[in-house]
Structures are given as C-alpha cells and as structure tokens.
Amino acid sequence: MKKRAGCRRGSAGALVLLLGLSLAGCFKPPAPVVQATLIFSDFVGPVGDRGEVKVSVASMPGGGLAGLVVGAWDGTQFLGLQYDPTQFEITGVEGLNGFQILATFIDNASGEVRFVAVNPAGGLVEGDVAKIVGNRLGGVNFDFQVAKANLQLVDANGALIPDTDYIVSTGKAPPYYVEGGN
C-alpha cells in the first residue's frame, strides 16, 4: 500500500510538473487590449449559408460608446465598411446590448455597408455593439476595409471621441474559424 501511495504521489507530482511546464512559457498569450479599439470581427459562417461580422468595442473612454456612425462624410464622400461582394452578401445590421440601428445603407453591388447605431440608455466600454448579417457566397478569404475618416464615435456624454483616441481593427473571412467568446 505504501508503494502504491508513493507511486500516486509521484504521479501527482509529475502532473503538477507538467502543469508548471505548461504555464512556464509554453504559451504565447495575446496582448491585452488596453487602448480604446473599435473592432470589426472576422466574418464567420459556412459557404452557402448565413454568417455574421460582429462590431464590438474595447476600453472605450468617456463612459463608453453610445453612438457609432459607419460611413460618415469624410470631406469628399460617404464611404462605409467595404467587402468583397462576390464573396459576401449583406442582408441586414442588428443592434446588440441595447444599441438600436437607426439607419442602414447596403450596396451589395459595390460591396459597402453604412449604418448608424445608438444606445439611448448609456455607454458601452467593452462588448458587442452590432452584428452585420448576410450570406457567404464563396470560400475566398478577403479583407474588410474602413477608413477612420468615415467613422464617428460618440461617448456616453454625447462627445465625439477623437480619432486619435482609438484604433480600428478590421477582420477577414478566414476558411477556419470559431464562434462566440473572445
């Protein structure tokens, strides 16, 4: 019995050692989001079926994001989020976490979507603002593009968030993907 207990203790020790090795630098953790960021996620969904792009924020200042304009006037034109219309067909934009979509403009011929999202109840520091839904037409990876000059972010105090105070991250349409979570 003593030998068995010793063996078990040895195995448990080995197990703890394996965990220690795992935690000691085998992994490369992603850098935490400390700067205010507007994120257009990767497009997820199978070919020939529905898919979505999440619009979310992280570390938003001024009590959080309360209003978002995608496709604002940049001095020369209105231009929203651009995508490959041969691969993606947008059918709508839905508000999340209390955000309401006040206006939407979708052009599946040129591959552009503009929308205005507001949250009358308050600001969102971290979380999802909206999701852009549509159909995946093909399996080719492509980049979503949007210019900062065509974005307007309003905080919970009603003040415009200067474009120097946040960064924008846009996704792709990867062939391999996971759903949900961060």
């Binding site: 992994f27 490369k28 992603p30 994120i39 996620s41 996971v178």
Partner: peptide, 14 residues
C-alpha cells in the same frame, strides 16, 4: 490561422 474571435492571433492556456 483560426479566425472568428476578437483580435485573433495565436493563443493558449491550461
């Protein structure tokens, strides 16, 4: 190479 989560990139945990 696996996308679909915020900011992506290689990640790991225990």
């Amino acid at each position: 190479s696996v996308g679909g989560y915020v900011l992506g990139g290689p990640t790991g945990g225990t």
